[in-house]
Design a protein around this nucleic acid. Structure first.
Length: 324
DNA sequence: AAAACGTGCAACCGCCAAATG
DNA sequence: TCATTTGGCGGTTGCACGTTT
């Protein structure tokens, strides 16, 4: 049996939203909220729209604190850094840019930033780098990425028994993670970030589970659909896992510890991106040293490096990384 | 002035996974 | 356990508008 449509397509309006529709939707949501049911909302609000359409309209355009307009250099850097790290996970990237929606960022990347970087690369190399048609796979070879990929363990630990970071490959920690009672949960209950193939082989298994190394997001979501992406890298933290430094073992690890990419400069004035916990406390940091130059190098190197450095036996053509 | 072309962005589509009954 | 519903996400499309020829 096929899947039922989310709405009666024959009786829903499509296309651009009129100011009247906008105000209806806005007024309704401000008055009653979404009620946790987008499908039923348009009828209640007197709109002849698909629930999904209402949801998108609200989250991408109508909800408060949406930021429109030019992206700053700082935002460029963050986007590039995260794209180089996790690929086209726009909702995650958006979570680091308050007020920006994933749709905005996606559009910005596809229409401007990518071209900008390509132009810069072409200029430096005098040849245009090939760029995959699919945005999902960043043009990053595992080898080149490894040159950028920072093991942040030193940020966490002086003499770590074990440490890993948001950008540490699971391959180096997965045995620890998997060899415990939580293995099943980890393997079956956690979603896995769709990991670009070029990254899978070398560095990334990024299991998603709550309460661990979250990409934080404000209650007002920056995802285009306000999904409040809270992506965590690794399985759920247990008390015994806090034996390594950098995670505040003594205080335990509580829910809702979220990490945000904190862009700024270090004492030397150099630009750094740091993973900082929010809203309170501090459990460590991870410097993301990607900048535009790095991304340019990533792009350019993709034309010369074979991106299929396959150290991973599970490597296949599926873009979705999987463990086990 | 008008057609052709390029660009940016809002919106839609379809897939996936979680939730629910 | 399975079918169905719903929310979430990323890719793609189509249109409006600006620029070029």
């Amino acid at each position: 049996m096929g899947r039922a449509p989310c709405c009666d397509k024959a009786n829903v309006k499509k296309g651009p939203w009129s100011p009247e529709e906008d105000s209806k939707l806005k007024e309704y949501i401000e008055k009653y909220g979404t009620g946790g049911n987008w499908i039923a909302l348009p009828q209640k609000a007197g709109l002849k729209r698909c629930g999904k359409s209402c949801r998108l309209r609200w989250l991408n355009y109508l909800r408060p604190n949406i930021k429109h307009g030019e992206f700053t250099d700082e935002e460029d850097r963050i986007i590039c850094s995260l794209f180089a790290s996790i690929g086209s996970r726009w909702s995650i990237i958006a979570a680091q840019l308050p007020g920006r929606t994933d749709n905005d960022i996606k559009n910005y990347w596809n229409t401007k930033l990518k071209k900008k970087l390509m132009a810069m690369t072409a200029q430096s190399q005098r040849k245009p780098p090939p760029f995959p048609s699919s945005h999902h796979t960043p043009p990053v070879s595992s080898q080149s990425l490894s040159s950028l990929y920072k093991d942040c363990s030193t940020s966490y630990c002086g003499t770590p028994n074990r440490s890993f970071t948001a950008f540490e490959p699971m391959s180096s920690v997965q045995s620890d993670l998997l060899n415990n009672s939580n293995t099943t949960n980890f393997a079956t209950n956690s979603s896995l970030i769709h990991t670009p193939q070029s990254l899978v082989s070398h560095m990334q298994y990024y299991p998603v589970k709550e309460n661990f190394l979250m990409f934080g997001s404000e209650p007002s979501c920056s995802s285009s659909d306000g999904s409040c992406s809270q992506i965590s890298y690794g399985r759920e933290i247990k008390q015994e896992d806090m034996s390594f430094q950098g995670f505040g073992a003594s205080t335990g690890y509580e829910d809702n510890h979220k990490f945000m990419l904190d862009y700024g400069t270090n004492n030397g004035g150099a630009n750094v991106n740091q993973w900082t916990e929010k809203p309170s406390g501090y459990y460590g940091e991870c410097s993301l040293d990607y900048d535009l130059e790095d991304v340019k190098r990533l792009i350019s190197s993709s034309s010369t490096n074979n991106c299929c450095n396959n150290n991973n036996n599970n490597n296949n053509n599926n873009q979705t990384a999987s463990v086990i």
